[in-house]
Design a protein around this nucleic acid. Structure first.
Lengths: 214, 214
DNA sequence: GTCTATACGTAGATAGAC
DNA sequence: GTCTATCTACGTATAGAC
């Protein structure tokens, strides 16, 4: 661990989604790793750093994870599953109109990134640190999540509910709003998460154009 | 360097802006470091890795930079200056209307990120790896660059050219489009940089609303 | 300005007792 | 499941010859 660094994030402490293991030590390791990986980065966090915060000996971690990389892989898996589950639930509970579905998807995307900023940062910045085999399940989920938005936009364009200048670029811009959230949004601020989610949905619909924007 | 990793980026080779030093070995070190830091990350790139690609002995690098951190600091400085210079030039060469100024700023922001994707990634992901003293000049430039866009938006709102639902959130969304570009855009693709810059400008104006959007 | 050689710390991970 | 102790490799950086 290189010493005098700022954190990449403002949020404290690290929050795991409910789907994460509730077991004792394994969960503590994941929470601590999440905080350290998010604030300093995976490669700048050592097993010894983790053990120190956990008040364990480094060797004790290997009773719970076979390597440091497997700790990261588990966080990456949890993060992608929570994100994808949230998007699917949002779609499922919304009606058939593309505008309503975009609103639901963007709200879920934004909420996930605002409520679990450390997980979002680790998932997005440290995925590349995994071997292809360990990264593969997450990469597949990413593609599926991106397809959910892309398909709704395509449908909206086909129905002439939307008129984006370029659907793929608009989809990337919509995704980017959420992904960048952890780097500037301060959770306890005057702007609450629900309001933010509504704002992002509004911006997304404006970008997509057509009769859908309010 | 941990071995079997994917790159964070598609772009090759690393391109430095014209403002970078044209001197021989120092420039070669910066270019090589840029490529490695962008694809594998600063903390996962060793002095030995750098030296191997450069076909030099590790100790030879210390004739040009006093530490690995100073190599990163120089890249971060170059990246922030090129970005800020591009934004200022864009503002300077555009008229007084907020919509035209936003278009110019967004085009410059997007072009910078599309033309120098490795530099954008290193600047955005590895700034936190610098000590506060080495990071400070870049942080000041970031704030100045962000203020350029914020002020134009504020002026547009005051003149009722723009009607964003929330100016600060809209500004963050506009910035995010460019920052995320290196992670999905493939430079040699059918979508050329100028078209992309126009698309982003169009999306920005749609988000800002009012009479400005085309 | 590059080389050889090396100092010195820390990395990830394991062995074996309790 | 946690401990003490340790292995081996690699990290940044320096010394001093050419």
């Amino acid at each position: 661990m290189s010493p005098p660094t700022r954190s990449r994030l403002r949020a404290h402490p690290a929050s795991l989604p409910p789907s994460a293991p509730s077991d004792g030590t394994r969960r503590r390791i994941l929470e601590t790793a999440l905080q350290l990986f998010a604030s300093r980065g995976y490669h700048d966090t050592s097993i010894r750093d983790l053990a120190k915060v956990l008040e364990l000996q480094p060797s004790a971690l290997y009773a719970h994870f076979s390597s440091k990389e497997h700790v990261l892989a588990e966080l990456v898996r949890i993060g992608h599953e929570a994100h994808h589950d949230a998007l699917q639930a949002a779609l499922k509970s919304s009606g058939p109109e593309p505008a309503e579905q975009v609103r639901a998807l963007v709200r879920a995307h934004t909420r996930t990134h605002a409520l679990h900023p450390q997980l979002a940062v680790v998932v997005n910045e440290e995925l590349y640190a995994l071997t292809p085999e360990l990264a593969e399940p997450a990469v597949l989920l990413r593609d599926k999540s991106a397809a959910l938005l892309a398909e709704v936009i395509e449908r909206g364009v086909a129905q002439r509910s939307f008129s984006p200048p370029h659907p793929r670029v608009a989809a990337a811009a919509i995704s980017a709003m959420g992904v960048r959230l952890p780097y500037w949004y301060e959770p306890g601020s005057a702007l609450d998460v629900d309001t933010l989610a509504d704002l992002h949905a509004e911006l997304a619909l404006r970008m997509l154009g057509g009769s859908a924007a309010s």
